[in-house]
Amino acid sequence: MKVVSTRSLDDALKALRDAGPDARILAGGTDLMVEMESGRTHPALVVDVWKIDALRQIREMQDGVEIGALADCGALIRSVQVARHADTLIEAARTVGAVQIRNRATIGGNLGTASPAADLNPVLFALGARVRVASTRGERELPVEAFVKGYRTTDRAHDELITSVFLPRRPAHELRFFRKVGTRRAQSIAKVVVSAAVAFDGERVQAARISAGSVADRTLLFDGLAQELVGAPLPQAAKLSEFLRRHLDAAAAPRDDVRSTARYRRFVLQRILESSLRSPAQVR
């Protein structure tokens, strides 16, 4: 196994250009090291980008906040800019692993691995994040739901590197939430994780993005559900329940695994979305 370790983005991109599709990118290592330790992966080449400090910055812009791909969960939690624009991302980051893991696990790594159980990704989906990737061929930007394409599969070409995630400025009246149900209260991977952002114009829903993890082979964005919410007040009580069931039954495709059962996931997904959508007190 060969390891290329660099502090320069250009050098990293060149290394990726010259490498084959089997090369692996090492950021914080919280996924890759586990895979290697368990023997599931034997990469011939590892491109270590951890020391590229330029990718670690969190910058507030006119229209939102740009978070460098190497910002780790600890950095997200401490960032005032993230607190201002993406408070639910901080909530999610707090539920990731323990302090040691949070200080290694990066936002770029979360996206790059694209695990269906990733804690940060549902928030990024709900907040309408845009993913910025670079290669020696140039840069491009795409919506996060287009970036994540399947079970641990993304739109990243093998010579590309995620450089940052852009989150748009927070609208005036928006209900946001993040909820994770794990095996225990800390250091556990989600059985079900949900996040949403619902913008209001008075009583009426102006825009909605609702996302969930651990209920399919990838992080899901419930597009159809959101579209039907727009233009009217949120349905109440039994109507909301029925509305969610109708959409989620078709959209979610959970399965049984070590952490929980499909039946449980389907049930709890609906319940926690329902109870979260019933709490307009959270609209800020």
Binding site: T183, R184, R185, A186, Q187, S188, I189, V258
Partner: peptide, 24 residues
């Protein structure tokens, strides 16, 4: 937790085999 068909233990790590933590 074992997979009887495959003949393996599925949670032979502290990540898969959870014990109560301080928050419990």
């Amino acid at each position: 937790n074992v997979d009887a068909a495959l003949g393996v233990m599925l949670n032979s790590t502290m990540e898969g085999y959870k014990i109560a933590g301080s928050l419990e």
